[in-house]
Computed example of a mutant assay.
Amino acid sequence: MSLQVVTANRLGDGLVVFLTADGGWSENINDSRVADGKDAAEAILAQASAPELDVVIVGPYLIDVEQQDGGLVPTKYREVLRTKGPSVREDLGYQAV
């Protein structure tokens, strides 16, 4: 099984966020709590799906990631787009920062 992290959307502004090791949420995938194995992945998804988080985030789910050049990179193109923002205009989204 590959490495996995939990992603969701923050309700306040709709931005893509990632579950961190301290149970918070970050816009930076490199701050993610990484699960290595099925049991660890299920545990972090359960943490992210706690009912009290329904007022903070929506739609948490696991994504596969790889370690590349000292950082985490999603393995699926859809998730790459979610982490970077729109692909049609590089002056928008996270890549514009």
Rank of each mutant, 00 (worst) to 15 (best):
M1D: 04
S2D: 07
S2I: 00
S2E: 12
S2T: 14
V5D: 01
V5T: 02
V6M: 08
V6L: 07
V6G: 03
T7D: 04
T7E: 12
T7A: 03
A8C: 09
A8Q: 06
A8K: 02
A8E: 04
N9E: 09
N9G: 09
L11S: 10
G12M: 09
D13G: 06
D13C: 05
G14C: 03
G14D: 10
L15P: 00
L15F: 13
V16N: 11
V16A: 05
F18C: 02
F18K: 04
L19R: 12
L19C: 04
L19E: 05
T20S: 08
A21P: 03
A21E: 15
A21S: 14
A21K: 15
D22H: 03
D22N: 11
D22I: 01
G23F: 06
G23K: 14
G24M: 10
W25V: 01
S26N: 08
S26H: 14
S26C: 10
E27K: 14
N28S: 06
N28F: 15
N28Y: 15
I29E: 00
I29R: 00
N30Q: 07
D31E: 10
S32I: 01
V34N: 02
A35W: 01
A35R: 02
A35T: 06
D36C: 00
D36F: 00
G37D: 02
G37K: 01
K38F: 07
K38H: 08
D39C: 04
D39Y: 02
D39R: 08
A40D: 09
A40V: 05
A41P: 08
A41Y: 05
A41T: 06
A41V: 04
E42S: 12
E42C: 07
E42T: 10
A43F: 02
A43S: 11
A43V: 12
I44V: 14
I44H: 05
I44L: 07
I44E: 03
A46Q: 10
A46G: 01
Q47Y: 03
Q47M: 11
Q47N: 06
A48T: 04
S49I: 03
S49N: 11
S49T: 08
A50K: 13
A50T: 07
E52Y: 12
E52H: 14
E52R: 09
E52S: 09
D54F: 02
V55G: 06
V55Y: 00
V56K: 12
I57D: 11
V58T: 14
G59K: 03
G59W: 04
Y61Q: 09
L62N: 05
L62D: 05
L62T: 08
I63R: 08
D64K: 11
V65T: 04
V65C: 03
E66R: 14
E66N: 06
Q67A: 10
Q68I: 11
D69F: 06
G70Y: 02
G71V: 05
G71F: 15
L72K: 05
L72N: 02
L72G: 00
T75F: 01
Y77C: 08
R78F: 13
R78L: 09
E79D: 14
E79Y: 15
V80F: 15
R82Y: 15
T83A: 15
T83Q: 13
K84L: 12
K84S: 01
G85M: 09
S87C: 07
S87Q: 11
S87G: 14
S87D: 07
V88F: 14
V88T: 08
V88M: 07
R89Q: 06
E90N: 08
D91V: 13
D91C: 05
L92S: 06
G93P: 10
G93T: 15
Q95F: 08
Q95M: 11
A96V: 04
V97F: 15
